[in-house]
Nucleic acid binder design. Structure first.
Ligand code: MN
Ligand code: MN
Ligand code: ZN
Ligand code: ZN
Lengths: 149, 149
DNA sequence: ACTCTTACTGATAAATATTTTCAATAAAGG
DNA sequence: CCTTTATTGAAAATATTTATCAGTAAGAGT
């Protein structure tokens, strides 16, 4: 049997997710998904729009916004906040995970470790807060950008 | 000698900082500073504008944006990103610190502990990234909001 | 296939949010 | 005071995000 490449597999998985949640599989949504799948960086709605329009020229920008928000609600992508530009999204394969982002090229590495439990508990005790969530992003340079100078 | 309360002290310190960096001490800037000092929450430019205008009605919104950015560059305040609204600022007394934010009332607790060094080093080794900075926010409910329900 | 329902779409407008420009003003130093 | 020039606010220009709405097409049922 012919083996699907990772990207195709992932696409199928995403479309299944949509179906599983009662959403319809439409051309515009497919175009958005295709535009972002397999891209190890993060993208702003405008960029997604540009790329997705190449496969589906009639696409509207609003639909990009809506689709990105939808995919995020399904947990397939996650929003990241950058120094410049707070609405970027990136692939999110893990349930709980964080991002290590290259400031030069935007490349994102996902990771799930975060030794915050101790800190969180200590803080909760000290402040009386109930701590419900944490946001963590690491910023730096990827290997490729490091050698590039 | 009469003791200054914390807020007055802090105001003096801020104005000194401005002077020390060659910036002028102007009425509009003072108004902005007064509007945010002593407030343990976080504020959006528009809110600062509203409050500062009460002591200096002629204030322009642009100046609020500019002043907040300036204070941030001086390290006196820090930007925080919320689920809704990515441009909020909060007091920052420590050089390196993070925020624990109440989702209900916006109250912010500053803290400087973060046991991320291990994780960071491990990740750097694994990914080849040079990790230069991290961004961390804890979200939850403050004691007051917890009892309020 | 064909029909029906309605989720989904894109165009448009509206609402927000941010940045740029620029002539007038006032802070700070002499 | 006087001079210099950093700073200001109004206004315009951009940029970003959300709300409306009539038309369209996905998917379920036949
Ligand atoms: Mn975590
Ligand atoms: Mn943000
Ligand atoms: Zn890179
Ligand atoms: Zn609270």
């Amino acid at each position: 049997m012919p083996e699907l490449n990772g990207e195709e597999q992932q696409k199928t998985r995403w479309l299944d997710q949509l179906k599983a949640h009662g959403y319809r599989m439409t051309r515009p949504r497919q175009a958005v998904v295709e535009a972002i799948l397999g891209d190890p960086t993060h993208w702003r709605p405008e960029q997604v729009f540009e790329r997705a329009r190449r496969t589906y020229p009639n696409l509207g920008l609003v639909t990009v916004y809506r689709t990105l928000e939808l995919l995020q609600k399904l947990g397939l992508i996650r929003r990241v906040h950058m120094e410049r530009g707070c609405r970027s999204y990136t692939l999110a394969s893990q349930e709980h995970s964080h991002q290590l982002i290259c400031r030069d090229c935007g490349r994102v590495e996902e990771f799930s470790e975060c030794d915050l439990l101790e800190t969180v508990e200590r803080l909760a005790k000290r402040t009386g807060y109930s701590i419900e969530a944490h946001w963590l992003e690491l910023l730096g340079r990827c290997p490729a950008c490091l050698v590039a100078g």
